[in-house]
């Protein structure tokens, strides 16, 4: 599908995504790469200029938003401020004319699912960010959508809470078996949660694959550079890439290249070094086994790696 804005800016350019039922699928890319526009086309808020949207073999391109049966979680949660938690969650069921008793039962179940029992009569403004996030999730899930769409749902949470919600969301998605399309610019988040990731750049899909594949075998320079840290090399006119953790720091005598430590960033479980060697900067990550303290800037080090770990990128 494609989408142009104002006839000039191409937001999404020939994106084809095949998302399997029950899959946790992420759209990952920098801001302005078209991931949100793609999601909004799936939701029905934007009409593709070209291309179709199919769900379960059914063409839904011309189906209006409110008949698509898709749950959506917004970055800002978009909770109704004038309604209580219960009223927020019950909204979708009410729109579907579900009988009162069923609504009560299903809302209670949904709130239990996201551990919000006891918060029923609060207003969104009386909840913490994480709780609001859960209400938004319960509100989208209670309608038992065919697809759950999430637009950077964890973006507004602090790091610790975000990590916890990553676990919870993934766990919930697996338990319910719902197909989830997740938009994020946070590569760690996408790697941690997804079954498969589509990395997008400038309206196009650069690569689709499982997290290990995307990380370990990036196809393009953009993917290699965007996901994690990487050393981009040029060998025989071809772009290549080598992950920092594939470089070992060894005594200069056993090294393929020797140089000096420029900076050492202590990351807790590992240290990320910038090493000046062979006329360029190399990134090398060393995990801390044992008590050895990190090297300091200025220390001489040798770099070693296995040629099999070098990935050749498309030029």
């Amino acid at each position: 599908m494609s989408k142009t804005f104002d006839g000039k800016v191409v937001a999404v350019d020939g994106v084809t995504l095949d998302i399997a039922a029950g899959e946790f699928f992420s759209l990952l890319g920098p801001s302005g790469c078209g991931k949100t526009t793609s999601l909004r086309m799936i939701a029905g808020f934007e009409m593709p200029d070209a291309g179709r949207v199919h769900v379960g073999g059914q063409d839904i391109t011309d189906v209006p938003v409110h008949r698509r049966d898709m749950g959506m979680v917004f970055q800002s949660y978009a909770l109704f401020p004038h309604r209580t938690v219960v009223q927020n969650v019950a909204f979708g069921l009410r729109m579907r004319d579900v009988p009162r008793a069923d609504i009560d039962r299903r809302v209670a179940a949904a709130l239990a699912q996201v551990a919000l029992t006891g918060m029923e009569d609060r207003r969104p403004s009386q909840l913490s960010g994480g709780q609001q996030q859960r209400v938004a999730l319960a509100r989208a899930l209670v309608i038992e959508p065919r697809v759950l769409l999430c637009d950077e749902p964890l973006g507004a949470l602090d790091r610790k809470l975000r990590q916890q919600m990553q676990f919870e969301l993934k766990e919930l998605q697996r338990r319910l078996g719902v197909t989830l399309v997740f938009v994020t610019h946070d590569q760690e988040e996408a790697l941690a949660m997804s079954d498969r990731i589509a990395v997008m750049n400038r309206g196009r899909v650069e690569q689709v694959g499982a997290p290990t594949e995307i990380y370990g075998r990036p196809r393009t320079r953009f993917v290699a550079d965007f996901i994690g840290e990487i050393n981009l090399l040029e060998e025989a006119g071809k772009p290549r890439a080598l992950r920092p953790e594939k470089i070992q720091l060894v005594p200069p005598a056993q090294a393929r290249l020797s140089g000096t430590v420029e900076t050492a960033n202590f990351l807790g479980g590992a240290t990320l070094y910038r090493v000046q060697a062979g006329g360029r900067i190399w990134l090398a990550r060393e995990t801390h086994a044992g008590e050895r303290s990190p090297r300091s800037p200025g220390d001489p080090v040798g770099l070693a790696w296995n040629d099999a770990d070098i990935v050749t990128l498309e030029s």
């Binding site: 808020f45 938003v65 409110h66 959506m72 917004f74 800002s76 978009a78 909204f91 729109m95 989208a140």
Partner: peptide, 25 residues
């Protein structure tokens, strides 16, 4: 927030219903 109305629509409210339920109040 415009997204409130969009949220209502994604939950099954048509445009008019979304307006009456969210924006109007």
């Amino acid at each position: 927030d415009e997204r409130l109305e969009q949220a209502a629509r994604s939950l099954g409210a048509g445009r008019i219903r979304a307006f009456v339920e969210v924006t109007l109040p």
